[in-house]
C-alpha cells in the first residue's frame, strides 16, 4: 500500500534530517511513529505527500513513486491522501460542513471550486461524516467557534471526504485534553478497522501509541531504530528509541 524505501532528506544540504529511512504501512492498520523531538517524524510524513521534496529514496504509494510524479499527477495522487494536523488548519470563518466539503474539491472542476458547487450526494456524505465524528449538530457552526477537539474531528471528517486510502496525522492530539484525545484516537482506530484505511500517526505519547497502534516505528536522529508489532515494544525498546544518538539494533538491521 505505502512503502518507503531508503528515504533521505537534508534541509540545508549539510545536516542530514533523514538518513536511509525504510518502512511500510498496511491497509487496515494503525501505524505510529514515535521518537524524540527533531528526530524527523514530521519530515517523513510530509515527504510522503511531497509537501517537502526529499533528496533521495522511493515512496511507493499504490506502486507509483510519489517522487516521480509531475505536478498534476501529484495533485491527483494527493486527493487520496488525507492529512490531519496538530493545529487542525481549518478555514476558521467557514462552517464545519463547508470545511468538510473541501475534501472532495480536489477531484472537481475549477468552476466547482470557485462557486462552491457540490452535488446533493456530496453534501449528504459530508453530513454523514460529521455525524460519524459526532458533530451532526455543529454542521452549520463557524469553525472558529468550535473547541479544539471538535475542530480536530472536523479535520478528520474533511480527510474522510477525500475517500482516502491513507491518512497521515502529525501529532493529532498534541493540543487536546485527555477526553478529546480518546475520542479522536478511537475515531482513527475505527477508520483502520472498519474502513480499511491505513492510518499513520506521529505521536509523542508512548502510552497512547501502545494502546492504539498495531505497528510502531521508532525514529531517532533521522534513522529507523525500531520497526515491529506493538507487542514487541518493550520498556527497553522505548528507552532505546528515545536515547540520544541511538543506533539501529543489530537484530533489526538483519531483518532488512
Amino acid at each position: 500500500m505505502l512503502t518507503v524505501n531508503h528515504l533521505a532528506k537534508s534541509y540545508d544540504g549539510e545536516k542530514k534530517s533523514l538518513t536511509d529511512v525504510s518502512f511500510s504501512v498496511h491497509p487496515g492498520e494503525v501505524t505510529v511513529i514515535i521518537g524524540p523531538s527533531g528526530a524527523g517524524k514530521t519530515t517523513i510524513l510530509r515527504s510522503i505527500n511531497q509537501l517537502i521534496r526529499d533528496d533521495d529514496g522511493e515512496i511507493l504509494f499504490d506502486d507509483t513513486d510519489m517522487r516521480q510524479l509531475n505536478r498534476s499527477q501529484l495533485r491527483r495522487a494527493r486527493c487520496r491522501i488525507g492529512m490531519i494536523f496538530q493545529n487542525y488548519n481549518l478555514i476558521e470563518p467557514l462552517t464545519a460542513i463547508e470545511n468538510v466539503l473541501h475534501g472532495c474539491l480536489g477531484t472537481k472542476s475549477n468552476l466547482a471550486g470557485i462557486f462552491s458547487l457540490y452535488s446533493n450526494r456530496e453534501k449528504e456524505t459530508a453530513l454523514k461524516l460529521l455525524e460519524k465524528v459526532g458533530l451532526k449538530d455543529f454542521a452549520y457552526q463557524q469553525c472558529r467557534n468550535l473547541s479544539g477537539g471538535q475542530k480536530q474531528r472536523v479535520g478528520i471528517a474533511r480527510a474522510l471526504m477525500q475517500h482516502p486510502k491513507i491518512i497521515l496525522c502529525d501529532e493529532p492530539i498534541a493540543s487536546l485534553d485527555p477526553k478529546s484525545t480518546i475520542t479522536v484516537m478511537d475515531i482513527l482506530r475505527d477508520l483502520a478497522i472498519n474502513d480499511g484505511i491505513s492510518v499513520l500517526i506521529n505521536l509523542h505519547q508512548v502510552d497512547i501509541a501502545r494502546e492504539y497502534a498495531d505497528h510502531v516505528i521508532g525514529i531517532n536522529n533521522g534513522q529507523v531504530v525500531f520497526d515491529d508489532r506493538t507487542q514487541a515494544l518493550s520498556d527497553a525498546a522505548i528507552t532505546g528509541i528515545y536515547q540520544k544518538g541511538a543506533v539501529p539494533e543489530r537484530s533489526l538491521v538483519h531483518e532488512f
Binding site: N49, L51, R75, R76, A77, R78, C79, I81, G82, M83, F85, N87, N89, I91, E92, P93, L94, E98, H102, G103, L105, G106, T107, K108, N110, A112, G113, I114, S116, R158, Q162
Partner: peptide, 28 residues
C-alpha cells in the same frame, strides 16, 4: 498562515479553489 494553503495543497486542490475557498474567506 502558510499552513492553511499547504493544507489545501495536501488535499489536491487546484489554485483557483485554494484562492476561493481558503484565502478569500480569511481575507474578507
Amino acid at each position: 498562515s502558510p499552513e492553511i494553503i499547504e493544507t489545501m495543497q495536501a488535499m489536491g486542490l487546484k489554485k483557483s479553489a485554494i484562492i476561493r475557498q481558503a484565502i478569500i474567506p480569511n481575507l474578507i
